[in-house]
Design a protein around this nucleic acid. Structure first.
Lengths: 102, 102
DNA sequence: ATGACATGCAACCGATATGTTGCATATTAC
DNA sequence: GTAATATGCAACATATCGGTTGCATGTCAT
């Protein structure tokens, strides 16, 4: 399951915070995004590479710095999958209701 | 961030498959849910305990077997968080549009 | 051209995750 | 009561994670 990698990437407080920041503001660089997270720049970099592996962000070198771009489509897929699961159990509940109403 | 634990729990192919199965059919036991996943029962059990830690499932012993119950609320929270992120970047885009239209 | 800035790469560490085998225990069926 | 079934617990092995320090490299400003 490829989606598992997406959820895994979101499954760390530091990385989740990064994604949250990027949702609020799209102008982060690798350096600016690494500050205030309680880890060193190199630690933050590892997290960012995992987010990139999971296609949740793109890292775009630009001169001396590296822009961090949020891939919204991946987040939307992660959301939609859960929505699909919800749809399944609701369908099941409807079927049960139809049955008991007879 | 407590949500991170939820995403982390979903971030493994075996566990994601388990959640998917439980969404389709609520009548699984620990044993029946452990079959066909490519891991031993003990391996599957570890995964289930992580799902329970993350409050995605409840394990209810019942006689000789253990029922596995899906906690839908946790999944819904995981979905809503992403929806909230989407709302944020959309708001930002609207603000930008309003600005450039002047 | 020199210094400050932003980043990349490698080595290392301890903790946790992922998976196994082996054995013990409790419940149900016959 | 005996056997089959469903599960629990412990020990172990290997890989990955999460984090660090140290150093090298490339870019920008003055």
């Amino acid at each position: 399951m490829k989606l598992a990698q997406t959820y895994k990437a979101l499954g760390d407080p530091v990385r989740l915070k990064m994604v949250q920041r990027l949702s609020e503001n799209p102008t982060y660089t690798l350096g600016s995004l690494s500050k205030g997270l309680g880890v060193t720049r190199q630690g933050a970099r590892k997290h960012l590479m995992m987010l990139e592996e999971a296609k949740l962000v793109r890292l775009v070198p630009e001169g001396r710095e590296t822009k961090v771009l949020l891939n919204k489509a991946s987040l939307t897929k992660a959301k939609s999958f859960i929505a699909e699961l919800e749809r399944q159990w609701e369908t099941r509940l409807e079927a049960l209701r139809d049955f008991t109403e007879q």
